[in-house]
């Protein structure tokens, strides 16, 4: 009996080592592609300053500066795009045959999937930290007044962003596990990303929408991430944290389960 449980422990250690190995590789690649980091930070800032600044010149939302109001939405947008696009790397892995090296290693497909999620989530969290720091600077500069970035709210924000990136990386990987070409991946994901982003209420408040639009925002899982983040760093929320976290965690569990299945079925 002792040896049985030892064997199991060795097996579990192997799987954990495998997850770390996949993460190690993703992180090295991320470090090497500096342009990816820069682009992932510059684009959201452009949205915030130009789109937010332009529209914010004529509107404010329930007393909150428009740029401040969309800051949580922009953070979520940044995480959404970089997370889902992370799935394209599995398409490249297949194309350059690196996927074979990983699939033939003595670790389970589930571990490969989890390693990839952790890799993608790391990228997004680094991106988020940079954006939160820039947010704090812009707040001090008076550009986005009313942003509440304390230690607690920052940690809270990172937890919300982490849960969000986990589910969105999973979606990217599920699509990537089915696609043969990076072009195909790009096409499918753009069809998916824009509705998810626009319906999440990242750029507008959810309380005065026409009924048809309101219903659509309710089905969008990202709505709850935006809402939770608004609650945490703006103190204004539509649904309350309990519902937000419930939907976020439930959705994440669902896509991880589906992703594990997709990886199990994935062909070389």
């Amino acid at each position: 009996m002792g040896t049985k449980s030892n064997e199991l422990q060795v097996k579990q250690m192997n799987e954990i080592n495998g997850i770390i190995a996949i993460w190690y590789r993703e992180f090295k690649v991320f470090q090497r592609e500096k342009s990816r980091i820069v682009a992932s930070v510059v684009n959201p800032i452009l949205w915030l300053l130009i789109f937010g600044g332009g529209l914010g010149a004529s509107i404010s939302i329930s007393g909150i500066n428009y740029q401040t109001f969309i800051f949580p939405g922009i953070l979520i947008q940044a995480v959404l795009f970089s997370s889902v696009f992370f799935g394209v790397y599995i398409v490249w892995d297949r194309k350059i045959d690196f996927l074979k090296e990983v699939l033939v290693a003595p670790i389970s497909r589930t571990s490969i999937f989890i390693g990839k999620i952790v890799g993608g989530a790391t990228d997004s969290i680094i991106q988020s930290i940079i954006l939160l720091i820039l947010g704090a600077i812009l707040e001090k500069a008076g550009l986005i007044p009313g942003l509440k970035l304390t230690f607690v709210s920052t940690v809270g924000a990172l937890i919300i962003l982490f849960i969000t990136t986990t589910s969105m990386v999973s979606i990217g990987l599920i699509i990537g596990s089915r696609m043969e070409s990076p072009e195909g991946f790009q096409l499918i994901t753009s069809f998916l990303l824009f509705p998810i982003f626009f319906l999440s209420g990242a750029l507008f408040p959810l309380n005065r929408l026409p009924a048809w639009l309101g219903t659509l925002t309710l089905i969008d899982p990202l709505t709850y991430s935006v809402d939770a983040l608004r609650h945490t760093i703006l103190g204004a929320s539509q649904y309350g944290l309990a519902l937000d976290f419930g939907v976020m965690i439930g959705f994440t569990v669902l896509v991880i389960a589906f992703g594990t299945y997709a990886f199990e079925k994935m062909k070389v």
């Binding site: 250690m13 192997n14 080592n17 495998g18 770390i20 190995a21 996949i22 190690y24 590789r25 090295k28 690649v29 090497r32 592609e33 350059i96 045959d97 690196f98 996927l99 074979k100 090296e101 990983v102 290693a105 003595p106 670790i107």
Partner: peptide, 25 residues
């Protein structure tokens, strides 16, 4: 050793080997 090259060319030679060692526990 696969027919087509299956190492990651964004990593160094050493890193490819290290990764392999990690994957094999």
């Amino acid at each position: 050793v696969f027919q087509d090259p299956s190492s990651d060319d964004t990593l160094t030679g050493y890193e490819n080997l290290k990764l392999h060692g990690m994957l094999y526990g």
